[in-house]
Design a protein around this nucleic acid. Structure first.
Lengths: 368, 368
DNA sequence: CTGAAAGCGCTAACAC
DNA sequence: GTGTTAGCGCTTTCAG
């Protein structure tokens, strides 16, 4: 419990305070032997540098902050994993805060991070629809998953393109009557829908129905929708269901199968978003990927670039003290298609484990 | 980009530095009018208090650190959600770090948190089997999900009891031949198995086979196991499968159904662990709960108690400066049974959304 | 290479 | 109530 500080270490090692500090921050400036002495003292005393003091005195830390809108949401977790991987690769720490769906909490953690002297912040905003930029923070910030015209750094999954490639795939698989289900209020799903519509616009002979799973008497989850679809007489039934999210699509499959229909034999089903959480069902789900993981990675890349640029500019700040360029960049993460059994296009039915092994970069892990 | 500090605010508001500090930390000590002046100045300048300096000067912050072994693991996320909820309830912030399966990284983040002056740390260790305590940290620490004889604060799900209640349920439902599947190397599953065995020991006429899903030619995921079980002739086939994790059990259901068997009509299936991620299947899964969420909550409760106790002791430290009591407590989170359709015991088949609505305290959310 | 000294931005005593 | 002052633990000059 005793708070051992740098001077204690110095005394213990029989050197001076400054030497210990050097050994810690510029090891090359301390004789190896002395350094060993110091390391032993540190070990013996269980010294833990006080990060606050360090920051106060020294400058910024190699720590990134990530503010997530929630912790029980697939895409956010993918972002976190992607961001973490990339951050570690560059030697940065990543601290995650959960805004828990509360815009105020989000702001709170933002300020917190900035005040803690993190070198940069990633924000995946709670509010994606009518979003407005934060008051300019004194550290670089990257916004994840939102579209905006404001200057700044943004990384977003290209939802529209996701809708397009899945729709195009459905067309290629010979769909004649497609039901698209989703929640209109969700921005991602809305964009995916738009993308899909763009594609289907070129095929006027394909019947397309869009149903808002959150509307009217329609039960919101895929499972119920699947069961409802199964009720439809065979000759009027669609031959393809496009779930605007993977969870919705997976639910539809479960619902259809429970009602005795087979996927893809009686009906194709495709999802969207590359959400591994939804891949555990009986039929491998065709979907678009990647989403979150790549967004997280890209976000960290942009952030680190911005940080290092700022550092450089700081170093030679003599010249352009006032010429702070706004630094704007919009990155759209391009999707690719994961064509699998649920649209009859896979090489076969694989178990969950094998599925994820196929795309190691998604870092799916085992949601055990 | 300009770093505005407290003295700038003071100048802007036309008061002195100390007054601004007071307005921030002890609002009641500042005349409301002055306070308003200061708040406006803060707003105008976009002042963000420097947390590091604050900590250095003042003491500890109302922040808790949580070190997770990974971010793609159901139970860890449940812990995070539970911990976050409880922390916010008590006015604490929660910062999450991902050790990414690396014990060194875990230690690294530990030290980081301590150095950042968080008031307490929760650790869900990477290594649950041969675990050894950290060198005594200068802040309270709660260990999550491990069993240990060392002094300290521990919160763990009672896996053995989980195995017991599910097994007892299977017995009650009339099982005569049970196959238990799991990974022997996983401590949680191992304990659940032990619990199950305790129960079945009292029913010698029930045939019990335990298969290690990670062993030999046995394919590791539930789906394949389900298909293998479906191959067995009807008269030799078990009448119940007990998956030692929900994901395994959900996979088994999918595998069985894909092979044409019905659950629970042909075969009962039960899981273990209360993992909402596995609840999206066609059949509502009988399982034990709660697990992670409650562990997280309890952990934060213990931690905050310890923190406040330490604070009190600090306040009147005149007396017992040396008498630091070790402070040991082991909390076992007791499970309850979620009996549902997969063992033929539920009131009916519900969709995912409705399932989670039934147990709001688990804060399941929509893994959209 | 080493040791002394000057703050980093803020809080918590104190005096005013 | 308000303004002043002494550090919090550390990194960095800068002389030795």
């Amino acid at each position: 419990m005793a708070k051992v500080k740098i001077i204690d270490v110095a005394r213990e090692a029989g050197v001076s305070l400054g030497t210990v500090s050097n050994a810690l921050n510029h090891p090359e400036k301390v004789r190896p032997e002395t350094r060993r002495l110091i390391e032993e003292a540190i070990e013996r005393l269980g010294y833990t540098p006080n990060h606050s003091a360090r920051m106060l005195a020294g400058g910024r830390s190699a720590t990134l902050g990530l503010v997530l809108p929630r912790l029980n949401h697939g895409p956010s977790l993918q972002i976190a994993n992607g961001a973490h991987t990339e951050a570690r690769k560059h030697g940065y720490d990543l601290l995650i805060a959960n805004a828990d769906g509360d815009a105020d909490l989000e702001r709170h953690y933002n300020r917190y991070f900035v005040g803690t002297q993190v070198s940069g912040v990633l924000i995946n905003p709670v509010e994606t629809s009518h979003w407005h930029p934060c008051p300019t923070l004194p550290v670089p910030v990257v916004y994840l998953g939102i579209h905006s015209d404001e200057p700044g750094l943004y990384v977003t999954a290209d939802h529209k393109a996701q809708g397009r490639i899945v729709a195009a795939h459905l067309v290629a698989q010979g769909a004649r009557h497609v039901v698209i289900i989703g929640h209109a209020s969700n921005q991602s799903m809305h964009l995916r829908l738009e993308g899909a519509r763009e594609v289907f616009a070129d095929y006027p002979d394909i019947q397309v129905d869009a149903v808002d799973a959150g509307e009217g008497g329609v039960s919101g989850d895929g499972y119920s929708l699947g069961q409802q679809i199964a009720q439809i007489a065979a000759d009027e039934r669609p031959d393809a269901v496009f779930g605007l999210s993977d969870v919705l699509a997976a639910g539809v499959i479960a619902g259809l199968m429970a009602a005795g229909l087979r996927v893809p034999d009686d009906l194709m089903v495709a999802g969207c978003g590359g959400n591994p959480l939804a891949w555990g069902g009986a039929v491998a789900l065709t979907t678009s990927a990647p989403s979150g993981y790549e967004v997280g990675r890209k976000g960290v890349q942009l952030l680190i670039d911005a940080i290092e640029l700022a550092a450089e500019r700081d170093a030679g700040r003599l010249g352009a003290a006032a010429g702070d360029e706004p630094l704007t960049q919009r990155e759209l993460v391009r999707p690719f298609l994961l064509a699998r059994a649920s649209t009859g296009s896979s090489s076969g039915v694989l178990g969950t484990a094998s599925q994820s092994a196929l795309i190691p970069e998604l870092n799916l892990g085992a949601y055990l």
